[in-house]
Design a protein around this nucleic acid. Structure first.
Ligand SMILES: [Zn+2]
Ligand SMILES: [Zn+2]
Ligand SMILES: [Zn+2]
Ligand SMILES: [Zn+2]
Lengths: 141, 141
DNA sequence: CTTGAACCTCTAGTCACTATAGAGAATACG
DNA sequence: CGTATTCTCTATAGTGACTAGAGGTTCAAG
């Protein structure tokens, strides 16, 4: 009925050190231990960790997830906070898509216009050297 | 004709500590110093830093920029390496756009379907708790 | 010559993990 | 029961690309 951290890792596809990290920063409650100090989890832990994992996949940061978890733990509250967090994340994603589309356009122009010759006439290098236009902030990845 | 690090920062809109950091990791050559050990730059430094800045805005990582700079310094070579780097970045951006579009769709569904009531019936929380579907890797931002 | 903004180096912190080391615990097999 | 293998433990350091701060020095304007 209860199982080790490695088993939890296998079932959730979250790595063992990551699980310990989540415990350390307070996203997961410290589970009971065996006499030899090894952690033992139950299925509630699976659900909570799956929640965290899904939230991370959607790009919520740890503080947002902390807030979302504490809402989940108090189901009688208004969900307006959760909605606000999700909307904020949506706005971030949309902004990011806009800026990545601009990057894509510029990168495409660079690679398409290059005649694959010497560096001296390479469009890639030329475009980079041309600082005459502006981007918003730095591209994150 | 030559100027301080603060002036270079103002002209390129790159922060002073970032300039020193670029020098430390070898993207910028150590400039001459005054008797009191303060850095003095000329307009070549502006061009090089603008190049780096533009490349960062397009999301190239430091190692890619290092390679691109060294190509720029040797203009008689073939530019195929530069083109390969740019194409790789383009591919990353395109992949990222695809995955962000998926995130956007899911986040939109979450916020649209929420009846703005109690947490117990909040679509945002429910969706996060539902681990039945998979995402690629974690969303980077 | 005085003032104060700008500069210097060095260290540590950010985020969300990931990796390693060295040691102890649990399990499978003979 | 012994031992080999696998697992787990803590603690620390590293990642990328900066950013912030402490504590001290230099430069340029007035
Ligand atoms: Zn999902
Ligand atoms: Zn080219
Ligand atoms: Zn550009
Ligand atoms: Zn809701």
């Amino acid at each position: 009925m209860d199982f080790s951290i490695g088993e939890l890792a296998r079932r959730t596809k979250v790595k063992v050190p990551t699980i310990r990290y989540y415990e350390q920063i307070g996203l997961l409650l410290p589970p009971p231990r065996t006499e030899g100090q090894q952690r033992r989890y139950d299925k509630n832990a699976i659900a909570r960790l799956a929640f965290i994992k899904h939230a991370r996949e959607l790009g919520f940061d740890i503080e947002a997830i902390r807030a979302l978890l504490s809402l989940q733990d108090n189901p009688d509250q208004s969900c307006s906070v959760a909605d606000r967090i999700a909307k904020a994340r949506l706005a971030e994603v949309e902004e990011r898509i806009v800026s990545l589309n601009a990057l894509r356009a510029e990168l495409r122009r660079m690679v398409e216009e290059c005649a694959s010759g010497r560096v001296a006439e390479c469009r890639v290098i030329e475009t980079l050297a041309d600082s005459s236009h502006g981007h918003g902030r730095l591209a994150e990845t």
